[in-house]
């Protein structure tokens, strides 16, 4: 029996070509635009925290968002969606060096579970 997953269908690369009538020079996945659009206001907000002013054309913010997006999407593949990469980055970003400190996680304790031998 030849058995295969359906994963390749979900692996299709869906990219934004540009608005009708105009083709963008680079084709990026839709998700990348989405992330970019989320990141720009975030950086603007951070900027506002420092200066209490909002610029008309947020050049720095756009540049930072582009860099961040491309950096994140370098680690994205069909098996690892962007939100997983971001989440991992927030907790555990890659490092080659094995860190010296280890931290204790909470113990997972099951002693308060109630046990009945029989249901009902």
């Amino acid at each position: 029996m030849r058995l295969r997953t359906d994963d390749d269908i979900y692996r299709a690369r869906l990219v934004y070509l540009g608005p009708p009538g105009y083709t963008l020079p680079v084709h990026l996945p839709y998700a990348q635009y989405g992330l970019f659009i989320l990141l720009v206001p975030l950086y603007m907000f951070i900027h506002w925290l420092f200066t209490f002013t909002v610029e008309l054309f947020p050049a720095w913010e756009i540049a930072l968002a582009i860099v961040t997006t491309s950096f994140i999407f370098r680690h994205v593949d069909p098996d690892r969606p962007a939100r997983v990469v971001i989440r991992t980055a927030l907790t555990d970003w890659r490092r080659t060096r094995e860190p010296a400190v280890e931290q204790r996680d909470p113990r997972l304790v099951g002693s308060r579970i109630r046990i009945r031998e029989e249901l009902a």
Binding site: P106, R107, G110, R112, R114, I115, R116, E117, L119, A120
Partner: peptide
Amino acid sequence: PSVELAITEIAG
């Protein structure tokens, strides 16, 4: 620290 497991009860 310790955290309870999500399971609260075993019945049968």
